[in-house]
Simulated scan of single mutants.
Amino acid sequence: MASPTEFLGPILELMTWVGVVPGVPLLIIGWIIRKRRCNWSTTDGEVFTAGRYRGLQWTDNTSTSRRGLLEPDQAPELQAGHVAVLHYDICHPARWRLEPPRHDNTATVLGLVLTGVGIASAIAGFVLMML
């Protein structure tokens, strides 16, 4: 009969490789994505009407006047002349939204989980060797 040490050793070594090898590159990719991402700015936009459509007009960080049409279901409570808070991408001002943007980075999260599992498995493997 095999002892638990003989059984757990190969499993922990495999989990170390499965965690660290893809985890570290994912952390690097997530870091690159975070560095290349542009910041979003918040400003006030005035609601205007264009026929049956409504839109927002605002001035971006370069003092350029911008306009964007609202989807019909996006903000039914906004009427012409009202002021709404909008968020826009500084590098690409045509990308805007009424709700604050989420800066999710799946590569970083997955890299942290895999690297953490790999490091924990490596530590457990060293502890197992010492027993």
Rank of each mutant, 00 (worst) to 15 (best):
E6S: 14
E6N: 14
F7D: 13
F7G: 02
F7N: 12
F7Q: 15
L8G: 03
L8K: 08
L8Q: 10
L8Y: 15
G9Q: 13
P10N: 07
P10W: 05
I11F: 14
L12E: 08
T16G: 14
V18N: 01
V18C: 14
G19N: 10
G19Y: 09
G23Q: 07
G23P: 08
V24N: 09
V24G: 11
V24R: 08
P25L: 12
L26T: 02
L26P: 03
L27Q: 11
L27F: 11
I28T: 10
I33K: 15
R34P: 00
R34Q: 14
K35M: 12
R36K: 13
R37I: 03
C38G: 14
N39H: 06
N39W: 00
N39D: 10
N39I: 01
W40H: 10
W40G: 01
S41I: 02
T42L: 04
T43H: 07
G45D: 04
E46Q: 15
E46L: 12
F48C: 06
T49I: 10
G51R: 03
Y53A: 01
R54H: 03
G55Q: 01
G55F: 01
L56E: 02
Q57T: 13
Q57F: 00
W58A: 04
T59S: 06
T59L: 04
N61M: 10
N61C: 09
S63N: 12
S63Y: 04
T64H: 11
T64Y: 07
T64I: 13
R66H: 05
R66M: 14
R66K: 13
R66L: 05
G68C: 06
G68K: 01
G68F: 01
G68T: 06
L69C: 00
L70W: 00
L70Y: 01
P72D: 09
D73I: 04
D73L: 11
Q74T: 09
P76T: 13
P76F: 12
E77Q: 15
L78R: 11
L78N: 06
L78T: 07
Q79G: 11
Q79W: 05
A80R: 14
G81A: 09
V83M: 09
A84T: 02
V85E: 14
V85C: 08
L86F: 05
L86T: 05
H87C: 02
H87Q: 04
Y88A: 07
D89I: 05
D89Y: 05
P93G: 07
A94M: 06
R95N: 12
R95T: 05
R95Q: 12
R95K: 11
W96M: 04
R97G: 15
L98W: 06
L98S: 08
P101E: 05
R102D: 09
H103N: 13
H103A: 11
D104Y: 10
N105P: 08
A107N: 11
A107E: 13
A107D: 08
V109Q: 07
V109P: 00
L112Y: 02
V113R: 03
V113F: 10
L114F: 15
T115K: 00
